[in-house]
Nucleic acid binder design. Structure first.
Lengths: 125, 125
DNA sequence: CAGAATCCCATACGATACTG
DNA sequence: CAGTATCGTATGGGATTCTG
């Protein structure tokens, strides 16, 4: 599959699958692009992490949203939940191989955003 | 910049900028990952398009959301609005160079999702 | 520590109608 | 054609409290 990487103007491997209103692609896209999905995914790119670590990393996330986001991502097979039966409880979250594939595509995007964000919100060229 | 593409485990060019709650990166990320942002951007990857074409492409979008999304993306400098003073009105939207950069990162992501979506929502490995 | 449960609100979003 | 205006709803998401 070829995709030229700049000032790209013609392709259409998406035509059949992303744009229809009720398609699997839309569902997955919504999960990933939910307010916290990307952040949790990318946070896990740095290796397995515990609940509280994720909570600290994704600043501003509520417990409810963390739980919900983790469940969705687990349901999609992007992350793995490893609960150890100890007291106090310890649960580690990590990327599955599918999750790693996705994150590999997400990281460049987030990096680009991170680099250009300031100019963008400041309205600079 | 190197980013290994699987079972990737260490980098952190994001540490400083994406995770803080009130940072430009978050703002831009929210714009891009809004329900319709990605779709409109990627639709425009196929070349300049008119309002009604975009509306047809991004199936399910309401006029309100299309207008709002286009304004946000224009405000961020991702797309260009070219209104021609003719009757009936004709307005073409196109990607700016900044928009093209972004889209170049978005397309592989959407393609990946498009390919794997079915398995993901069906709960298959 | 790692959640689940509940309550509640803001706003994202859709449907419809109207306009230059 | 390319929008704007208005209204109503659904739900994303926060705060708080409770539990194994």
């Amino acid at each position: 599959m070829k995709v030229s990487t700049s000032t790209n103007q013609s392709f259409d491997p998406l035509a059949g699958g992303i744009f229809p209103a009720a398609c699997p692609s839309r569902t997955v896209l919504d999960h990933v692009s939910s307010k916290w999905g990307v952040l949790i995914l990318v946070a896990l790119a740095q290796g397995p992490q515990r609940w509280s670590e994720l909570r600290r990393r994704a600043q501003g996330i509520s417990e409810k949203m963390l739980a919900q986001t983790l469940k969705t991502l687990e349901g999609d097979g992007f992350i793995l939940r490893d609960a150890q039966p100890v007291i106090p409880p310890r649960v580690d979250y990590s990327l599955t191989s599918r999750g790693s594939e996705l994150v590999a595509l997400l990281v460049p995007l987030l990096e680009w955003i991170n680099v250009h964000a300031e100019d963008i919100v400041n309205g600079q060229a």
